[in-house]
Nucleic acid binder design. Structure first.
Lengths: 138, 138
DNA sequence: TTCCTTATTGCAAGAAGTTACAACAATATA
DNA sequence: TATATTGTTGTAACTTCTTGCAATAAGGAA
């Protein structure tokens, strides 16, 4: 029943393991429907696995993001939030009222391509929040 | 002699004050030549003003950035670094070796303009670090 | 000057995030 | 099976960052 079981083969294929801790964290993210802070993940996943600890949550979130099972995104105050991987996307966040707008991926992707050809770098982090003031708040 | 005195009128004009703490922090950033973390600013500025405290450093950096006297930029781990305002620019940072490359501002500016016309938002934060793998490390 | 208002700071406590290391658990190999 | 190897976690201590609040300092008005 749990959506997190689908991820086990992905981990196994790379020589990693699906542990109860990873299961609980993936389960939490799957069923939240939105991005969560590490602290929120910790609080929720602990209801399912009470032995879970903070360092494990931070390590696991970073691990899952590195392996592409979840996405990380930087939020306004310089911290990370996490969500399950759907499609690549960006958000435009209003500094004033907090309203989020999903950005047409084309606009950003074109710039990434230019950046890559200009620099020789291969861009790895394609999930960025942009900040501004929305039309209502201006 | 201190470069930070040039900023006093900018603050006064907005009803703010140039205090010894702000002076010390601006002085530190002016003479470092590179971006610094809040902790680094704290350590350096304290040599000049021993009574300076941590909360004041964090608050002052945020305050100065909001008022355009310094720039803030997000660094890899989701934390902020600060530097004195020069020209608007972006960095491309290698996830592997840490090498930084200054990005041609045109590339990014064009995308910002598209974002603005598409969304109606006015982009406020134009100082973003992009992450990737540099040509050497690929 | 004296009084009032507001900007600004320090203190103390707490929240969030990180690190080092020992212990454990799963898998592979002999 | 026994042994070695490697992945993974918990504990404890620590660093980094934030918040609430009282105290202070600066500037304006009377």
């Amino acid at each position: 029943m749990s959506c997190s079981e689908a991820y086990a083969p992905q981990l196994r294929a790379r020589g990693y393991r699906m542990t109860p801790q990873r299961h609980a964290i993936l389960h939490t993210l799957c069923h939240s429907g939105k991005h969560l802070t590490p602290i929120e993940v910790y609080a929720r996943a602990r209801k399912q696995l009470t032995s879970l600890t903070e360092p494990t949550v931070y390590r696991t979130l970073e691990f899952l993001a590195e392996n592409g099972l979840i996405h990380s995104a930087q939020i306004g105050n310089g911290r990370f939030v996490y969500e399950v991987t759907r499609h690549a996307h960006h958000h435009l966040v209003c500094r004033h009222c907090g309203k989020e707008l999903e950005v047409d991926h084309q606009i950003v992707e074109k710039m990434y391509q230019k950046l890559e050809s200009f620099s020789g770098y291969k861009i790895t982090d394609r999930h960025i929040n942009f900040f501004g003031i929305c039309s209502n708040c201006q």
